[in-house]
Computed example of a mutant assay.
Amino acid sequence: MIREFDNAQADHTSQPLIATDRAGQQLEQPSIEAIWTLLDAVPDPEVPVVSVVDLGIVRDLQWDGRQLVVTLTPTYSGCPATEFIEEAITEALHAAGIANVRLHQQLAPAWTTDWITESGREKLRQYGIAPPVGSASKRSLLGEEPEVACPQCGSHDTVQVSEFGSTACKALYRCNSCLEPFDYFKCI
């Protein structure tokens, strides 16, 4: 799926000039590295402590002439936050003066929790959400339960309370040591 955005809708007169002039013409192209850094500040709407880069949703950035092509893979095809994420990415790029943006959804290969960065996993833990354990393999289909550590006290004496937590991609757990409930970001 490719979504085109009408660059004429963006009001560049009220924003600082970085990469465009007042007519919306691209002056210079920021480096891909600078754009990765910019997008690393775009938070996930469901877990704002991690960015869309931390989650591995942004798959690729490329300049196609004067147009920036951002390839995204949603966490799952029915994720209710996908459209919001696309809008947040576009707004961040427009605010940085990158006027000509095309978002491209790439559904294959499917997103997996293996794509969450180590930094993202640590941010989840510090926020009180247990990051995915192991790899998104077929183990879970065979009934093997992950050993989930409590993000509060580190204990492995935890129990799943519900298959679903605050969102469909999380399960609700309770720590038997500190008795605190917490979300576990399921391996997908």
Results as ranks from 00 to 15, higher is better:
163 E>Y: 12
149 A>I: 00
106 Q>D: 11
80 P>W: 13
147 E>V: 12
120 G>R: 00
58 V>D: 04
166 S>D: 09
120 G>N: 00
114 D>I: 11
118 E>D: 15
71 T>F: 05
88 A>M: 14
88 A>W: 02
184 Y>T: 01
149 A>F: 01
167 T>W: 00
83 E>P: 00
115 W>E: 09
63 W>I: 11
115 W>R: 15
162 S>P: 05
182 F>K: 10
4 E>N: 11
14 S>D: 11
115 W>C: 06
15 Q>P: 06
43 P>W: 02
163 E>A: 15
102 R>G: 03
136 A>Q: 08
27 L>Q: 03
81 A>Y: 07
34 A>G: 02
147 E>F: 00
183 D>I: 02
108 A>V: 10
32 I>R: 14
32 I>V: 15
70 V>F: 09
177 S>G: 04
93 L>D: 01
49 V>F: 08
43 P>A: 13
44 D>T: 08
8 A>C: 03
46 E>H: 03
14 S>V: 13
187 C>H: 14
118 E>P: 01
143 G>K: 02
130 A>S: 15
17 L>W: 08
18 I>K: 13
181 P>W: 02
34 A>T: 05
105 Q>I: 12
156 H>E: 04
90 T>W: 03
35 I>M: 06
49 V>D: 09
53 V>A: 10
148 V>L: 10
10 A>C: 11
89 I>F: 00
45 P>V: 03
137 S>G: 11
153 C>Q: 12
16 P>H: 04
158 T>V: 00
91 E>L: 14
183 D>G: 07
145 E>R: 03
124 L>W: 05
71 T>I: 07
130 A>V: 10
110 A>P: 04
169 C>F: 07
158 T>G: 01
96 A>D: 13
177 S>T: 13
175 C>D: 12
25 Q>K: 14
134 G>W: 06
131 P>Y: 10
137 S>Q: 02
47 V>D: 01
9 Q>R: 14
48 P>N: 14
132 P>T: 05
172 L>C: 08
176 N>P: 04
44 D>Q: 06
58 V>S: 06
152 Q>G: 12
94 H>L: 11
53 V>Y: 06
186 K>G: 02
81 A>V: 13
53 V>Q: 07
80 P>N: 10
37 T>H: 09
106 Q>Y: 02
157 D>A: 13
24 G>N: 03
162 S>L: 09
58 V>Q: 04
17 L>S: 15
89 I>Y: 00
30 P>D: 12
187 C>K: 15
68 L>V: 09
153 C>S: 12
143 G>F: 00
111 W>T: 01
141 L>A: 14
